[in-house]
Amino acid sequence: MDIYQHFRKEEQPFIDQVLSWQDEVASRYERKVSDFLDPREQHIFRSIIGNNEDFVLRDFGGYEASERKRIILAPFYESPLDEEFGVTLLEASYPSKFVTLEHRDVLGAFMSLGIKRNKLGDLIVTDTHIQILIASEIADYVKMNLTGIKKAGVSFEERPLGEVLQTQEEWQEQSGTVSSLRLDVMVKEIYNISRQKAGLFIDKGAVKVNFRKVEDPSFTLETGDLISLRGKGRSVVKEIEGKTKKDKWRIVTAVLK
């Protein structure tokens, strides 16, 4: 069976990487540690490996509720520990009296260093502190070079993973049925707007799927896809449970409140 038929064409390079790791772990008995993966990539990884008893697959992003995670694929007899994932927590404070920082400000400053997005895990931004979970191999570089965000001077220091701040984020889960897994239909259902309005948002480039702008209303969503609608927040497709007797798709989604 052609494994590619179950995934999108643009996901083939990632699938090839997972298959290559699978072969290497099987032949060399050496574990592989991925970069940080978004929920869709995590789903693909697990789908490919499945319940193969020759491997151990564990994920870790620094704390229990993390969205972006690294995955270790290892021979069946190994038991990877949290500290072996290479995840480092950096923290900085900033003068909130003089500047307001948001998630996008911190992400933009991080990306301006020329570091790839897959080296960065979750970002936590409060009224006074910033925490970033990153690949340990770039921690020193980030500490030395990420010294300013907007007009705020910052100095990042390493903290134990147990000191990850509790975020105020709350995901509200909802289930329902849709006639199609098209992007416009799903946006309509998730954000409780008309399909026409959903289509307009998509046409104007206001919708992203897995951090990439999608302007095709017929784009098909799948399990693990992260959606963001400008002005209305983020959501995720948690499960696609199959079809009902009336030929509708049963879905479970969650919206960030």
Rank of each mutant, 00 (worst) to 15 (best):
residue 6 H to F: 13
residue 10 E to R: 05
residue 13 P to D: 10
residue 19 L to F: 03
residue 19 L to H: 00
residue 22 Q to H: 04
residue 24 E to F: 12
residue 24 E to Y: 13
residue 30 E to F: 12
residue 33 V to N: 10
residue 35 D to P: 00
residue 39 P to A: 12
residue 41 E to S: 08
residue 42 Q to K: 07
residue 42 Q to E: 14
residue 56 V to M: 06
residue 58 R to E: 15
residue 58 R to N: 15
residue 61 G to R: 02
residue 67 E to R: 13
residue 77 Y to H: 12
residue 77 Y to W: 14
residue 81 L to Y: 05
residue 84 E to P: 05
residue 85 F to K: 00
residue 99 V to C: 13
residue 100 T to P: 01
residue 103 H to T: 04
residue 104 R to A: 10
residue 110 F to V: 15
residue 111 M to R: 01
residue 111 M to F: 09
residue 113 L to D: 09
residue 116 K to E: 12
residue 118 N to M: 07
residue 121 G to F: 03
residue 123 L to H: 08
residue 128 T to I: 13
residue 130 I to Y: 05
residue 131 Q to L: 15
residue 135 A to S: 15
residue 137 E to S: 12
residue 139 A to D: 15
residue 140 D to Y: 08
residue 141 Y to K: 01
residue 142 V to W: 07
residue 142 V to C: 06
residue 154 V to P: 05
residue 155 S to M: 13
residue 159 R to A: 11
residue 161 L to C: 06
residue 166 Q to R: 06
residue 170 E to R: 11
residue 172 Q to P: 01
residue 174 Q to C: 06
residue 174 Q to G: 12
residue 175 S to C: 07
residue 175 S to I: 08
residue 178 V to C: 08
residue 179 S to L: 09
residue 179 S to P: 00
residue 182 R to G: 03
residue 185 V to D: 06
residue 185 V to G: 01
residue 191 Y to Q: 01
residue 193 I to G: 02
residue 198 A to H: 11
residue 198 A to Y: 11
residue 207 V to P: 01
residue 208 K to T: 10
residue 217 P to F: 14
residue 220 T to L: 15
residue 220 T to R: 13
residue 242 G to M: 06
residue 243 K to T: 12
residue 243 K to P: 01
residue 244 T to S: 12
residue 246 K to V: 06
residue 248 K to T: 15
